[in-house]
Amino acid sequence: MTHIPDQIKSDIRTAKRLEYWTIGWQASIIVVMFLVMGASQAMKSAWAEDLLGLAPATVFLIALHFEKKAPTRQFPYGFSRANSIAFLVSATTLMLMGAYLIYDSSTKLIQQEHPTIGPVHLFGKDIWLGWAMVAALIYSVVPPIILGRLKQPVAKRMHDKVLHTDALMQKADWMTGLAAAAGVIGVGFGLWWADSLAALVIAVDIVRDGWNAFRIALAELADGAPRALDTNEIADDASALKQRLEEQFPEGHVRMRESGRLIMAEIADAKPGNDVSLERLWPGDRKTRWRLGAVSFLPERARNNSQ
């Protein structure tokens, strides 16, 4: 139950490759952005978002490593929730970073600080550093657009929350890049506030990213019902499963929770018949059967004790 289901093994390989690509590209973006960051507040925010963009990819790869591990005596349920724990940590970081950037750029707006973006000496000429910033931002926009698009369908098939959030964050990344570029160009037109304003918009977006990830991770860790990937609603396949189980065991009480990408169902006050199998209980088609990790039955007394 803790091992990776066969049906999604090839998707996992794809996802892994995409995440390694993400880390590689993202690292190059971080270096380029750092080199031209200067005193621009918008660049600072965009850079922070790029830096934090590494988190989901890293969390995904680490979690995958744990997911492969067999349960141990200390962890008899396996490690499929490792990603939720890691996710919670990175979501918290994201929110704190965003909050700091909101504070930082709004104080600069209030104090009316004029961002200084001077010249750089490149190829024997003095060039305004702002142009280098815009070029770096354009570079930073391209890989996330492509990688984010490639990740979304894979994340859906794998029911992977980390990968899905990662794809969404990359989708937001290009907006960030454009907002920062607009801020820098605004400064070029003598609009000193454009830079801090762009930084503020980006920071709000970082907090929003963090909040979404935080909510998703928390729902799983608090044994919430399985959520759909893109909303906080209960997942369709989980609702269908609940209905099926309630039909099959009308006297029982059905509860579900999510462990990593698997649904764990529990039926209290019911006895499993002799011919119960996960294949038969799963309402969806065989390709998605792996989603149902386990069905547990609780005798009446046990349920009463647990309440």
Binding site: E113, H114, P115, T116, I117, G118, P119, D126, W128, G130, V187, G188, W192
Partner: peptide, 14 residues
């Protein structure tokens, strides 16, 4: 030069 006077900074720096 004054902060944010970017054109002027470039001209002076030249």
């Amino acid at each position: 030069v004054r902060l944010g006077e970017n054109r002027w900074l470039i001209d002076v720096e030249r």
